[in-house]
Amino acid sequence: MNKQIAGYINEHLDEILERWTIKMEDEKDDRFFQIMSEKVIDNTVREFGELVVFSLTESEEVYRVKLNDFSVKIVRYGWSVTFVLKALTNFTHVLYDKMNEDGYLNEQNIISYTEIMTNWITPLTHSIVEAYSNVWDRTVHLQKMALQELSASLIPMFDKISVMPLVGTIDTERAKLIMENLLHGVVKHRAEVVLLDITGVPVVDTMVAHHIIQAADAVRLVGAKCMLVGIRPEIAQTIVALGINLNDFTTTSTMQRGVEKALALTNRAIVEVKDK
């Protein structure tokens, strides 16, 4: 019976996918069909239809390979779990309506076909969501590792002056890594002034400010001074609105001004050399 359903889907795949695409375009909470090119949409829709057929006709090993490849693709496209579930539900409805229109379903077989489709779509849903979740978790983990590696290094700029550029959201785990690298770098480079550059931090809330203040206090304990640079106007407004106390900080809006103040703290200055 599964092969009969698979055969029917294959025979009418183009029309089924066309109807399914129209139905999915009406889902207003996902922008996949609005922002992707027609070629990408057509290819993805075709792969989705083939995946459904594979679940009925191919071996578990072949199906799993196809399923994993498709899951990687839809994670990259930003499909949410909700959108994936709606896609499966809508495909089932379109298939049922099409079979009913063609007279494929009748009083004699509708109960058995409905039972078969239910028993087929439930494990299919579970397997797709499981594969999607695994790929998504792996992607998030890799992105998190990459972000940690990119945004927590103390870089010597001048003698006694170092800078740490911070990029992305700062959570408790990242704050711990930043603190460790910061203290290790201050001792290693014998820094007297450290510039914390928050230009790449999208949001500074109470928690982020708390982590930054802790980092500054720790730097002072090892004999250096911490400066906060890269404070954009919107960040300044947020800090004021939240009542965050940064009075113990030297703060500047740009790295350039921060470097000038850091040089002054170490009894140096940038001077213009005139041609003789």
Rank of each mutant, 00 (worst) to 15 (best):
I35H: 09
R31F: 09
L88E: 02
E234G: 01
Y104R: 05
T118I: 06
E130M: 03
S37N: 00
K176F: 05
D197Y: 01
V201A: 11
K276P: 14
K176I: 05
T92L: 01
S151G: 15
D69L: 15
I121W: 06
E149R: 10
E234K: 06
D30Y: 08
E58T: 15
E101L: 05
K274T: 06
T44R: 13
H93D: 06
E61D: 12
R76V: 13
Q148R: 09
N90S: 04
T251Q: 02
G7Y: 07
N90G: 06
K144N: 13
V81D: 06
E272S: 13
H141D: 15
I111Q: 04
S80W: 07
V204W: 05
D275F: 03
D102S: 08
L85N: 08
D217M: 08
K261C: 04
G258V: 05
I5N: 02
T21Q: 15
L166I: 11
E130Y: 10
H126Y: 13
K39H: 11
S127K: 14
V240P: 08
I212K: 10
F70L: 09
V194W: 03
D171G: 13
V65E: 11
E115R: 00
F33A: 08
Y77D: 10
L183N: 12
L183C: 02
E260H: 09
V140Q: 14
M117F: 00
V45S: 08
